[in-house]
């Protein structure tokens, strides 16, 4: 059945409904990843967003248990050019509403040129739909992290060091990256008090990725500010932004963000470039306090991709070292984190 993606600015993109017959409202974003649609669908960082796949053929290789990044999908809507048999049914089961047969390239160029827009998947393209699009609650005004963070602490056993993972909507890939390295991972809610985290006596704290605007997460920022003084800490994506804010930096909303598996990032220390997976609409302002050092820059637009504290054992990256979907070129950052955590413990025991 024909339906339309209608944006707040009145732009209309016709297509064919797939997935559940109603719903589909949120900030419309696009990712250029050519593989990993199931990972994208279930990445909690996409909470509240209608995701457009720039790559036109989606559903080709089916779905698998290994590809989940969370228990289920998180996207608010899914827009593709060509859905391969199976995607429709998958979205129905997952209760996601989608739109297929869309000139997704036209949509991507629209978002690139005018910036991200809110939108709805509607059965008719009229002004009423535009009004509904304009009425979609902006990411900043909604407790997205609260919706995806775990409610209470969860322990995932492991022989190695204990890592407290502040869950702002963590991707399964991050948890696996730690557990593959033998860590005991303790997931704590995003609003856990510093004391509660310290009580776990973690070797290190990892602040996860997650959806929405970091600046509104006052309690988590406070927690990170408190912990960074005492425990080796790593931040990823939203966690990176939270660390920056905790250390006195600022963040801002990007025009259309970075979403894809091909973002080149240069590491300042050795000039090496790695290809990274990214999914973020906010970025860290390069104007940072003197005790914070920028370690990674985006080669395309020179945005801040990584930072570390000059004295404290704390660093963070804007990209996803674990990929999923995308390259694992930066995987060894997890080893750096664990090495740092290890030193931290020894330092503490002295």
């Amino acid at each position: 059945m024909t339906a339309f993606l209608v944006l707040e600015d009145g732009a209309v993109f016709p297509g064919r409904r797939i997935g559940v017959p109603d719903g589909g409202a949120g900030e419309v974003v696009f990712t250029t990843s050519m593989t990993g649609y199931q990972e994208v669908l279930s990445d909690p960082s996409y909470r509240g967003q209608i995701v457009t796949m720039a790559y036109p053929l989606i559903g080709n290789y089916g779905f698998s248990a290994e590809a989940w990044e969370a228990e289920g999908p998180h996207v608010a809507g899914f827009v593709v050019r060509h859905d391969h048999a199976g995607l429709d049914g998958f979205l129905r089961e997952a209760e996601v509403s989608g739109l297929a047969g869309v000139d997704t390239r036209a949509l991507v160029l629209h978002l690139r040129t005018h910036g991200l827009r809110r939108g709805v998947i509607a059965d008719s393209p009229g002004p009423e739909a535009v009004r509904r699009a304009a009425a979609v609650v902006p990411p900043g005004m909604r407790d997205l992290v609260g919706e995806v963070s775990c409610r209470e602490t969860r322990r995932l056993p492991g022989p190695g060091p204990r890592i407290a993972l502040i869950d702002c909507g963590v991707k399964a890939g991050i948890v696996q990256a730690l557990r593959r390295r033998g860590c005991e991972v303790v997931l704590v809610p995003h609003d856990a008090a510093p004391a509660a985290v310290e009580a776990l006596d973690p070797a290190g704290v990892l602040v996860s990725n997650g959806p929405g605007d970091p600046a509104v997460l006052a309690s988590t920022i406070a927690t990170v500010r408190a912990l960074v003084e005492r425990v080796p800490l790593m931040g990823i994506c939203l966690g990176h932004q939270l660390l920056a804010l905790a250390l006195g930096g600022r963040t801002y909303k990007m025009k259309f963000g970075h979403r894809g598996s091909n973002q080149p990032v240069r590491e300042a220390s050795n000039g090496r470039v790695m290809i990274t997976t990214q999914n973020h609409g906010y970025a860290v302002d390069p104007a940072l306090p003197p005790d914070v050092e920028i370690t990674h820059l985006n080669l395309n637009d020179h945005t801040v991709e990584g930072l570390r504290h000059r004295e404290l054992p704390a660093f963070s990256v804007q990209f996803h070292p674990e990929g999923r979907p995308g390259p694992g070129d930066a995987e060894e950052l997890y080893d750096r984190f664990l090495a740092m955590a290890d030193e931290g413990t020894h330092a503490g025991s002295r």
Partner: peptide, 14 residues
């Protein structure tokens, strides 16, 4: 014109 050769092309066609 804006970016460098250190990246991986993303296709939106086949």
């Amino acid at each position: 014109g804006a970016t460098t050769a250190a990246f991986e092309p993303a296709l939106d066609y086949v």
